[in-house]
């Protein structure tokens, strides 16, 4: 029973696999279905790079086993730009120097996507608190915070009619 079947919907597409029970959701995404946008920094729940949405909620995919996600809907960074068209938040990251090396970016984007969905008018404090669980070693966070606030403004002004996705 150390091998188990799991059926996970990732970015709208279903993937059924028989996997080791110990396989994390992060490794499932990266190695089983080759979605390498989700990054693994620390593998013990500290850095936040592996953050994905599971049934709409941000979670650390290194702290969840793929078998636990059986029947769940997962959104990864690839799912934010389904047709290669960047989301409003992603575009705001580019425009506001919200990334440099890009390692933390997938986790930042997913975390902030959840925030903007729930709080269309976040304060700077809200943004800073939302990303306390995501480490960035390049930007000093200033560009990321600016990008999030800019994206919120653009969304309120009607950009990206599908919402922040």
């Amino acid at each position: 029973m150390s091998k188990q079947g799991t059926l996970i919907t990732v970015n709208g597409k279903s993937y059924g696999r028989v996997v080791d029970a110990r396989l994390t959701l992060a490794d499932f995404l990266r190695h089983e279905i080759n979605l390498t946008g989700t990054h693994l920094g620390c593998e013990h729940g500290v850095c936040g790079a592996c953050t994905v949405l599971v049934d709409g909620r941000s979670v650390r995919s290194c702290l969840m086993f793929a078998v636990q996600a059986n029947g769940c809907e997962v959104t990864t960074v690839e799912g934010l730009a389904p047709d290669g068209k960047l989301s409003v938040l992603q575009q705001a990251f580019i425009d506001n120097h919200g990334l440099q090396c890009g390692f933390c970016t997938p986790g930042m984007l997913i975390t902030l996507t959840e925030l903007l969905r729930e709080k269309p008018q976040p304060s700077e404090q809200d943004v800073r608190e939302a990303i306390t669980g995501n480490l960035c070693r390049c930007t000093g966070y200033a560009g990321i915070v600016k990008a999030a606030l800019d994206a919120a403004q653009r969304l309120r002004n009607g950009a990206g009619k599908a919402g922040a996705r």
């Binding site: 029973m1 150390s2 188990q4 080791d20 029970a21 110990r22 994390t24 490794d27 620390c42 593998e43 013990h44 086993f65 078998v67 059986n70």
Partner: peptide
């Protein structure tokens, strides 16, 4: 940084 093998029960 991977866990050791275990049997999973749900």
């Amino acid at each position: 940084m991977k866990p050791a093998t275990f049997d999973y029960h749900a």
